[in-house]
């Protein structure tokens, strides 16, 4: 299958979040993905980019760092890969809120892990890998062609 790939590098600061979302939106719109799915993809990417910037880099004291967003499109999938060189951080090792916690009244609810839960639930596939000293968070949405 033919893959079409392009990428853009962003400064690892929180004010890059809106630029990252804009980039993903622009690319996903070109691929014909609908507004609601683009929003959810942006949400997933935003939540994980926030963790990379806040926990991966800032807490480790790494300055002048970057996050690379790599977009790959083919007939079946649209993918965004966020790459960073912070210490390994596997979002799946974080404890996520369970159903019982999600049903608790808001005044009693813990709020941690909500971002990662949203990231997982907002795309068709979310994976993490650590390769060549690089964290790779991979988000994929399936392209549904309703005509076929």
């Amino acid at each position: 299958m033919e893959n079409d790939t392009e990428s853009k590098k962003f400064k690892a600061t929180l004010d890059s979040l809106s630029s990252i979302r804009e980039y993903v939106t622009e690319q996903a719109s070109k691929a014909g993905i609908d507004k609601n799915r683009i929003y959810k993809l942006c949400l997933a990417v935003d939540e994980i980019a926030t963790n990379i910037i806040n926990y991966g880099y800032l807490r480790s004291g790494i300055k002048n760092a970057h996050v690379q967003a790599i977009i790959t499109k083919n007939a079946k999938h649209f993918s965004v890969v966020l790459e960073d060189t912070a210490p390994p951080f596997n979002p799946f090792e974080r404890e996520l809120p369970n159903d019982e916690e999600l049903n608790k009244p808001l005044e009693e609810r813990p709020i941690g892990g909500l971002g990662i839960m949203l990231a997982k639930d907002s795309v068709d596939e979310f994976r993490y890998e650590y390769k060549n000293s690089t964290n790779r968070n991979i988000f994929r949405i399936n392209i549904c062609n309703e005509d076929t």
């Binding site: 979302r21 929003y39 942006c42 949400l43 935003d46 939540e47 926030t50 808001l106 005044e107 609810r109 709020i111 909500l114 971002g115 949203l118």
Partner: peptide, 14 residues
């Protein structure tokens, strides 16, 4: 756009 950071503000207001 609202992320979990925005939900946290809603939670505080609530």
């Amino acid at each position: 756009f609202v992320s979990s950071a925005g939900l946290r503000v809603l939670l505080m207001i609530y």
